Structure formats: C-alpha cells, structure tokens
Amino acid sequence: MTEVTVVGGALVRDGRLLAAQRAHPAEIAGKWELPGGRVEPGESDADALRREFAEELDVEVTVGGRIGQDVPLSDRKVLRIFQVRLVDGRRPRALQHRALRWVSAHELADVDWLPADRVLLPDLRMLLDG
C-alpha cells in the first residue's frame, strides 16, 4: 500500500540528462539523482514536479510522459519519473544540491547514482538515444 510518491524529472538538453548531486542527508550526500521530491497531499505528480524544479533549480518546467515503472523505495513509498522540459531559456541552478551536471548516454553508468535512480538507467539511456 503506497502512501508516499516521490517524483523525479528527466530533463534533457542537447542530448544530455541533468543530474543533481545530493547535499544532504549525510548518508546519501554526494550521490546523484534526478531532481524532484515528495508529492504533497492534494498535489498532482505534475504539480509536485513543477514546484520542486522551481524550489530546487529556479526553473519552470512542463511535465511530459512517464519514464519507466514505479521504483519501490520502501513498503509505503515509490519513485515515479517523468520527462520534463524547460519553459524558457533559463539555466538550472543548484539551490539545494551540491552540484549539477549534464550526463550523456555513454556516461550514465559512470555516475554514482542513488540506487532507485540507477534502476531506471536503461529507460534513461533509451530516452537519450531517442
């Protein structure tokens, strides 16, 4: 029984995927993830992604289709990934992460991803190969 959904956004620019390096909590700081966060009560997945990208990266996005399947994070929590696109030409800024980087399809496996994001690498590679 899932009670919490965490959403992430796959933002692609010039054939590269945006990855964000966690700043906290300590046990996962330094690992990389797709930007996003928890869906709040009464909020849609798309609304949560738009809010999280604004808060974490200072950019406005539109939300597209799903990428891959839900990834269980625990008995009551799942990760759900969507493709997102920038609304304007602004560049994402790391407001809550240590760093941002753009990753090509051949670099995906070399990134120290969080385990849940790593599960989606085949789907992300297909997105980048396009």
Results as ranks from 00 to 15, higher is better:
residue 50 R to V: 09
residue 1 M to Q: 08
residue 118 R to H: 04
residue 92 P to K: 02
residue 4 V to T: 14
residue 39 V to C: 02
residue 31 K to Q: 15
residue 13 R to T: 13
residue 9 G to S: 13
residue 12 V to W: 10
residue 22 R to P: 00
residue 29 A to G: 06
residue 45 D to N: 06
residue 89 G to M: 11
residue 129 D to I: 13
residue 41 P to K: 14
residue 8 G to A: 15
residue 6 V to T: 15
residue 107 E to A: 10
residue 115 P to Y: 08
residue 34 L to Y: 09
residue 56 E to L: 08
residue 26 A to Q: 09
residue 91 R to H: 14
residue 71 V to A: 04
residue 30 G to W: 08
residue 25 P to D: 12
residue 122 P to S: 08
residue 65 G to F: 05
residue 101 R to K: 08
residue 92 P to L: 04
residue 92 P to N: 05
residue 57 L to F: 06
residue 55 E to Y: 15
residue 104 S to L: 06
residue 7 V to T: 14
residue 121 L to Y: 01
residue 109 A to Y: 10
residue 98 R to Y: 11
residue 21 Q to V: 03
residue 44 S to M: 07
residue 54 A to G: 10
residue 29 A to C: 01
residue 56 E to V: 00
residue 105 A to Y: 11
residue 40 E to D: 14
residue 9 G to K: 02
residue 40 E to A: 15
residue 56 E to D: 11
residue 27 E to I: 03
residue 98 R to S: 12
residue 111 V to F: 03
residue 66 R to L: 12
residue 93 R to D: 08
residue 66 R to E: 13
residue 18 L to T: 04
residue 17 L to E: 02
residue 51 R to Y: 13
residue 26 A to K: 08
residue 110 D to P: 09
residue 7 V to A: 11
residue 114 L to P: 13
residue 8 G to W: 00
residue 71 V to Q: 05
residue 115 P to T: 04
residue 77 K to D: 05
residue 111 V to R: 06
residue 25 P to H: 04
residue 59 V to P: 00
residue 5 T to Q: 15
residue 39 V to R: 00
residue 89 G to H: 02
residue 38 R to D: 06
residue 104 S to A: 11
residue 28 I to D: 06
residue 94 A to R: 09
residue 74 S to Y: 00
residue 4 V to M: 09
residue 102 W to A: 07
residue 45 D to S: 06
residue 9 G to T: 03
residue 31 K to H: 14
residue 84 V to F: 08
residue 66 R to C: 14
residue 52 E to N: 01
residue 34 L to V: 01
residue 14 D to N: 11
residue 83 Q to P: 05
residue 52 E to M: 04
residue 14 D to M: 03
residue 81 I to N: 11
residue 50 R to L: 10
residue 69 Q to T: 13
residue 35 P to E: 01
residue 62 T to L: 13
residue 86 L to N: 01
residue 98 R to N: 07
residue 80 R to P: 05
residue 74 S to D: 00
residue 87 V to E: 09
residue 111 V to W: 05
residue 100 L to W: 09
residue 79 L to K: 12
residue 90 R to P: 02
residue 60 E to R: 13
residue 12 V to N: 07
residue 109 A to E: 12
residue 17 L to F: 03
residue 79 L to T: 03
residue 107 E to G: 06
residue 1 M to A: 09
residue 104 S to H: 01
residue 19 A to T: 07
residue 99 A to T: 10
residue 94 A to M: 07
residue 42 G to C: 04
residue 125 R to C: 09
residue 118 R to Q: 09
residue 47 D to R: 07
residue 89 G to N: 07
residue 43 E to R: 11
residue 49 L to D: 01
residue 90 R to C: 03
residue 68 G to L: 10
residue 74 S to W: 00
residue 41 P to N: 10
residue 115 P to R: 12
residue 68 G to D: 01
residue 108 L to Y: 12
residue 9 G to C: 02
residue 111 V to K: 04
residue 86 L to D: 05
residue 89 G to E: 13
residue 26 A to P: 07
residue 116 A to W: 14
residue 34 L to S: 02
